[in-house]
Design a protein around this nucleic acid. Structure first.
Lengths: 96, 96
DNA sequence: TGAATATATGAGCAAGTATTCATATATTAC
DNA sequence: GTAATATATGAATACTTGCTCATATATTCA
């Protein structure tokens, strides 16, 4: 498969979203359903600031979506491609 | 899906292998069949040193395999999970 | 043997990234 | 209005990473 440079860059950006353990755990939590920033922070034992920074990047890549309710913001996966990538990646990791 | 920290790290390492445009193009070339370091370098317009450094990382992750023949070394994909990840990623990139 | 070719590798550096801390914005309750 | 809560964001910093350059190893050929 011969890729154009542009597609290679886009692909690399997509995989970069999953190239950090915090983000992988964040996304795997969202695979169970939507969750607020504070809940995510608590589950991941990260500061809310750090979580918010990560979510910003994922939002800009349209991998997660935000829904505001009161003063909370609930995040969910914007696309099922991501969870399919995570599942496929797990296949490799588990019996690779 | 709740991941252990270890699995999250392993997953992130796997996706990190695809988080760079040079490596994505490298892997996409290997999806067509085995190729020597010098051929890869020429196709990608990278120095052989840079390609060799990248291949080293991919080798250590068991994503590519090396076969020595004379003074050339031919690399190929060690696992079809990787190409499946690239294909799935392309789905997202193309009509995301 | 020595020269040429193909690849590998360590050091060093520039660019990128994940986090923390301080601060800003927005919403709710009083 | 003020205080408290939830999230967002910019700056600074420590860490990581991809490359280049120089050098090492391995193989072929004369």
């Amino acid at each position: 498969m011969k890729l154009t440079e542009l597609k290679a860059i886009k692909l690399a950006e997509l995989f970069s979203a999953l190239s950090d353990a915090s983000r992988v755990r964040l996304i795997s939590l969202l695979m169970e359903g939507e969750m607020s920033v504070s809940t995510l922070a608590e589950e991941l034992k990260m500061t809310e600031s750090a979580v918010s920074h990560q979510l910003r990047g994922l939002r800009q890549m349209h991998l997660v979506r935000a829904r505001k309710s009161g003063r909370k913001v609930f995040y969910s996966l914007d696309d099922d491609h991501v969870s399919r990538l995570v599942s496929l990646g797990l296949d490799h990791v588990q019996h690779g």
